[in-house]
Design a protein around this nucleic acid. Structure first.
Lengths: 343, 343
DNA sequence: ATTAGCACTCGCTATTAAAGAGTGCTAACA
DNA sequence: TGTTAGCACTCTTTAATAGCGAGTGCTAAT
C-alpha cells in the first residue's frame, strides 16, 4: 500500500504534468507549497513509486511522468471532484437555450459545447432508436418508378429510404400497402420490424397486393435500422494542439482513426450508465495509446439512450472533464426525459 | 511569349516536381530524355522563366519549384488529358454498382471513391433542393405537445423537424392543417415555401385553425431549407501524408478549415458548369495557400445540382485529377438524369 | 546561340562543447 | 531510523563549427 506521502507526491506529479506536459523533477516538486520535505527525500519516494509502476522516466536522468497505472490510481483514488465555475455552467445551459426539440440536434450541440469547453475532442453517440416504437409508416410516390418510404418513431425520429416500385403498381395499391403496414406494425419496436414484416405482414400482402414479393424486400430494407447510431463530433482538430501529438505518426494514426466511425464506435460502445474512464492502453487501440476516453451515458427515464465522450491526451484534466460530462449528461437526461417521456 | 524550349522546360520541371516534391535543378533536368541541351543552357532558360514568374527558388542556390502562375500556365496550356486506366474505370463504376436510389448516397460514394483514387481530399456538394418542387407535407403527432413535420420533394428529398403543438390542438385540426398546406403548397418550389406560407396560407389558417399564430411560425421554420446543401467528404486526413504539410502550423490551419463547413462551402460555392480550377492563392484563403481545388459540377438534365471537388497540394496531379473528375461528374449526371428526370 | 568551367551560396549533416536539469548514492545528521 | 546535504554521473538541449553536395550565375571559349 502507498503511504500518505507517496500519495501526495503522486498527486502533485500528476497535477503538475497535466498542466505542464513536462517531466517533473524532484527539485521543482520540493519547491511546491504542499511539499515540505527535501528533494532527496522526494527522489527516494519517486524511486519507489517508479518501482511500483505509477510513474516513469523518459530517459535515465529525466524527471518522472505518470504511467497509465499512475493515472488509473489517480482517477480511482486521488481525484477531487471539481466544481464548475459560473462561466462553464452558462455555456452548458446554452445547449438547451435554443428551442430545439430534436434529440439529435441537442446531442450534437452537446458535443460541440463540450469540445469548446475542454479543448479536447468530443464524441456523442446519438440516441438509440432500437427500442423506439413505430409511430407511423408513410409511403410517398415520387414518380412512376420510385417512392419514398418514411418511418416515424415515438421519439420523433424520422428515417426514410427510396425504393423502386413494380411497374404495375398504382396509387391505390400503394395506399393499401401503407395501411396494411401501419395496421400491423404501429407500436412495434423498431428493432422487431424487419422480423415482423416477413413473418406477419408478408401473408397479408400476398393477399392484397400484386407483385408483393417485389416490394416486400424494398420495404423490409427500408425499415432496417442502421448498424449503429449516429456519431457526432466536436473539436476534431483540437488534438493537433496537444504537445504530445506534435509527432506526425501519432497525429496521423489518431486522426485517421477518428475519421473511421467504426473504430470510434467500437471504443465507446460498451459503457455502463454513469461515468466510464479508459486510460491509454486500456482502450486497446494503438492509435489511442496516448489518449484517454471518458464517457457518460444519457437516458430518457430509465432507458439508456446514448453517450457523450471526451477524447483527450492521457494527460488530460480528468477532474474538470468528469465534472463537465457528469453535469451535461445529467442535464441531458433530465431535459430529454421531460421532453419525451410524456408519450 | 514563351519559346518552345521554355515551355518544354517548364513542363518538365512541373512534372518532375509533382512527383518528387523536391526543387528541380538544371543538372538533373539535363539528364532527362526529353532534354537535349546542357545544364548551362537550362540555367539560362530557368533564369528567364523565373523572371517571368513561372518558377521560383526556395533559397538563393536551390533548384526551382513552380509558382502559382507556373501551375496556372501549365494547367491552361501544357496539360495533356490523361486517359483513365481500366482499374480506375472499374472503381468509378463501383459508385453506381449498389442499387442505391438516393441522390445523397450516390454523391457521398463519389466523394469516397474519388479520395481513394487520388489520395487527396474529396469534397462533394450535395444536390440542391432549392428548386425542387414540394411533393407532400405530412404532420405526424408524437405526443400531446409535439409533432413532426415532414416534407418530401419531387426528387425524393426528405426533411423533417419537430415542433411544439399548442395545447388546444387536437388530431382533427392537425389533419386539417396538413390538408391546407398540401392543397396550397404542393408543386411549389422549396425555395418559395416560406414566403407563400406567410402570404397565402396564413389567411386560410386563421379561418380554419385555432391558435393559428402559434403554429404558423413553427411550420414556416420547418419548411426553411438549410442555408447550404450538405457537404460530403472523403479522405479528410489524406493531406497529412503530403510532404508539404509536414509542418504543424500548415496542417493545423488546413484541417481546421476543413472542419468548418462554412469556409469549405465558400470555397466551392461559385462554379460554372464543367471543370473549375483554383490554384494556391487563387482560392483567397490563407489555409489554402499551398492547395489547389478542382471542381466539377453535376446536374440532372440541364439543371445544375451540385459539385464534386478535389482538394490537394498545389503540387497535385492535375491531369489525372481532372480526368477523374470529368469522368465521374459525367457519369453522375447521366445516371442521375436517368433516375430522376422521369418525374 | 550554346556550353564548359569555376567561384560562390546555401542547406544539410556530423561533430564537438558547454550548460542545465535531473538522478542515485553515500555519508552525515536529528 | 528517517531525512537531508552533497556530489558524481547521465542525458538532453543548444550553439558553434566545419565539410559536403547540390545548385546557381557569370565568364569565356566554341
Amino acid at each position: 500500500m502507498l503511504t500518505d506521502r507517496q500519495l501526495l507526491i503522486l498527486q502533485v506529479i500528476i497535477n503538475d504534468f497535466i498542466h505542464s506536459a513536462q517531466p517533473v523533477g524532484s527539485r521543482s516538486l520540493s519547491k511546491k507549497e504542499e511539499i515540505s520535505f527535501s528533494s532527496a527525500t522526494i527522489r527516494n519516494e519517486m524511486s519507489d513509486l517508479e518501482e511500483l509502476g505509477f510513474i516513469e522516466k523518459t530517459h535515465t536522468s529525466s524527471g518522472r511522468i505518470p504511467s497509465d497505472k499512475g493515472y488509473r490510481y489517480y482517477v480511482d483514488h486521488l481525484l477531487s471532484p471539481q466544481k464548475l465555475d459560473q462561466q462553464d455552467v452558462y455555456k452548458v445551459k446554452s445547449i438547451f437555450a435554443e428551442r430545439i426539440y430534436e434529440l439529435e440536434k441537442i446531442v450534437q450541440n452537446s458535443a460541440r459545447i463540450l469540445s469548446e469547453l475542454t479543448n479536447y475532442t468530443a464524441i456523442a453517440l446519438g440516441p438509440a432508436v432500437r427500442d423506439n416504437k413505430l409511430k407511423k409508416i408513410q409511403i410517398v410516390p415520387i414518380n412512376k418508378q420510385t417512392a419514398v418510404a418514411i418511418i416515424v418513431t415515438d421519439s420523433g425520429y424520422v428515417q426514410n429510404r427510396m425504393f423502386q416500385l413494380p411497374e404495375t403498381m398504382d396509387l391505390g395499391e400503394l395506399e393499401k400497402l401503407a395501411n396494411i403496414l401501419n395496421d400491423r406494425l404501429a407500436g412495434s419496436s423498431i428493432e422487431s420490424l424487419n422480423d415482423k414484416i416477413y413473418k406477419e405482414v408478408a401473408l397479408l400482402l400476398r393477399q392484397h397486393i400484386n407483385n408483393y414479393d417485389f416490394i416486400l424486400h424494398s420495404i423490409a430494407d427500408t425499415l432496417l435500422i442502421p448498424s449503429h447510431e449516429k456519431l457526432f463530433f466536436g473539436g476534431k482538430t483540437n488534438m493537433l494542439s496537444q504537445p504530445e501529438f506534435h509527432d506526425f505518426e501519432k497525429i496521423k494514426s489518431l486522426m485517421t482513426m477518428i475519421e473511421q466511425e467504426d473504430s470510434i464506435y467500437e471504443l465507446i460502445r460498451k459503457n455502463q450508465s454513469g461515468i466510464n474512464i479508459k486510460i491509454g492502453r486500456e482502450n486497446n487501440n494503438t492509435a489511442m495509446e496516448n489518449c484517454s476516453l471518458i464517457t457518460a451515458t444519457y437516458s430518457i427515464g430509465t432507458e439508456q439512450l446514448g453517450s457523450i465522450s471526451i477524447l483527450g491526451p492521457t494527460r488530460m484534466e480528468y477532474s474538470r472533464v468528469i465534472s463537465l460530462l457528469d453535469y451535461i449528461s445529467r442535464d441531458l437526461t433530465s431535459v430529454l426525459t421531460k421532453l419525451y417521456q410524456g408519450n
